[in-house]
Design a protein around this nucleic acid. Structure first.
Lengths: 223, 223
DNA sequence: CCAAAAGTGTTGATGATACACCCATGT
DNA sequence: ACATGGGTGTATCATCAACACTTTTGG
C-alpha cells in the first residue's frame, strides 16, 4: 500500500477497589524509553488477533487476574507519543475484584497496585489514559451494573456500596442504597447464603444478575 | 522493533438530521476491495498528525461541511477486516447541521446522504461501525447538549425537538420539551430574534449555550 | 373569525432523600 | 445486656408525564 507503517499496541487500565481506595495496576518499565518509570501494562498487537483478544491476552500474561469486565476505552496516537517510532495505542479498561497479584508464572513480578490519586508522572501519555479510564468507570457506575465487576462472585450489599463510595469519593446512605439495588430487577440474585460476621447481623450474599443497564440510573447528584 | 507493520486509517460516521430522518454520509468506493459498494468516508493516518487532526482533515477534504461536533468513536482491528493487509481503523463520530453537500473542490463528488435505516451492506465492517455510531449518538442525547450540534447557529425549540424525535424515533410532548430545555441552565441562549412563520405564532430563536452536560438528563423512558 | 403553532399552569404519579426504627448476631 | 451492622417503614421533597389552556401570528 505504501503507507507509513505504524506500530499498534494495546494498553490496559486495570482498576480494582482495595483498602477503601480505587487502585490501578502499574508496572515499572525495564527498557527504554522511560526506563524505570511506572506505566500502564500493555504490549504489541499480534498479526492474527483482534484488539479485544490482544487486550485479554495481555491482561492474562501480565497479571493472571480474574477479570470482572473488559472493554475498549479509546485510542491515542499523537505523533510524538513514543520517541522510537510512530505508535498508536488502543487502550482498554478492565475492572477486577480485589485479589492478590500472582507473582509466579507471569510478567507481573514488578506489577503493583497504586491508588489512582497517587498515580502520576507515568510514562508516555499514560497519565491521560488513566484519567480517561477512571472517568469512564465513574460515569458507567451511574447507569450500568458495572460495579459488580469489582466484587467477588458472591458479595453483600454493603460491599457493593463500598465500591460506589470509593469510586465516587462520597458517602451513600446505606438504607436507601440497599433498597435501590435490591429493588432493581435483574441486578442481584440471592445465593441464599449469609456471611459470618464479627459483631453484627449476618448479611445476605448475592451474585450478579443478568441486568447490565440500570433503569432508572443511580445519579451522583452534582459532581 | 521488529513488530508487524499495521496500517492505521481514520473512518468517519457523519450524521445529520434532514427531512425527518437520521442520515449518514456514504461514499461509493472506486477502488478494490469492495469496489462499487458504499462505505463510510475515511483515509490513512499521515505521519505527522494526531488521530483527531486526521479525522478533521478527512472530514474537510471529503465533505467541506461545517462541523457541529467531532469525537472519537472506537477502534476496529479484526485481522481479516481488510483483505489487502492488516488495517486498524479509528472510527470517529461527527454530527453536522443539515446542509447541502458541496460538490466542487472536494472528494465529495460521489458522496450522498442515506437514511441510516437504509444503510446496510456497507464495505468492510462498516455496518457495525455505523451501528455503534448511531447508538452513541442516541445515548449521548440523553445526557449532553449534543443535539444542538445537529442545528444551525440559530434555531427554535421546535427544531431541537425534531432532532430528538428523529434520532430517538419517538414523539415527545412539545409542552414538556419546551419547559425542559428552556429550564436547563446554560443550554440555550436567546438571540432576541423570532422566526417569521407561515400560519402560526412566531418562535423565539436560540443559539447553543455553554452547557455541555445535562443535569438532570433527558431520559428516553423504556427504549 | 379561524387555523396553526408557541408557550404556560396544574395535577397526579413516581422516585429520591432523610431518618426513625426493628432484626440478628458476637461478646 | 449491649454493641454492631443488616434491613424496613414512612414523611417530605423534587421531577415528570399528561393535558387543558392562553398567546400570537397568517389567511
Amino acid at each position: 500500500m505504501g503507507h507509513p507503517a505504524v506500530a499498534v499496541t494495546v494498553d490496559l487500565v486495570v482498576l480494582t477497589v482495595r483498602e477503601d481506595a480505587l487502585c490501578v495496576l502499574l508496572v515499572r518499565r525495564g527498557v527504554e524509553p522511560h526506563r524505570g518509570r511506572e506505566a500502564l501494562p500493555g504490549g504489541f498487537l499480534r498479526p492474527d488477533e483482534d484488539l479485544a483478544a490482544a487486550a485479554a491476552r495481555e491482561l492474562a500474561e501480565e497479571t493472571g487476574l480474574t477479570v470482572g469486565h473488559l472493554e475498549q476505552l479509546a485510542s491515542y496516537g499523537a505523533p510524538d507519543r513514543d520517541p522510537r517510532q510512530r505508535v498508536v495505542t488502543v487502550a482498554h479498561l478492565a475492572l477486577v475484584p480485589d485479589q492478590p497479584l500472582p507473582t509466579a508464572g507471569t510478567d507481573a513480578a514488578d506489577a503493583r497496585w497504586v491508588p489512582v490519586a497517587d498515580a502520576c508522572g507515568l510514562a508516555f501519555d499514560h497519565d491521560r489514559v488513566l484519567a480517561d479510564g477512571v472517568e469512564r468507570a465513574r460515569a458507567k457506575l451511574e447507569y450500568t451494573a458495572l460495579a459488580t465487576a469489582f466484587c467477588p462472585p458472591a458479595f453483600t450489599v454493603a460491599q457493593l456500596r463500598r465500591v460506589y463510595e470509593v469510586v465516587w469519593g462520597r458517602a451513600l446512605d446505606p438504607r436507601n442504597f440497599h433498597r435501590k439495588v435490591t429493588g432493581t430487577p435483574g441486578l442481584l440474585e440471592p445465593t441464599g447464603e449469609t456471611t459470618t460476621r464479627d459483631g453484627g447481623r449476618p448479611a445476605q450474599l448475592f451474585r450478579r444478575g443478568p441486568a447490565d443497564t440500570l433503569h432508572p440510573p443511580f445519579l451522583r447528584t452534582d459532581a
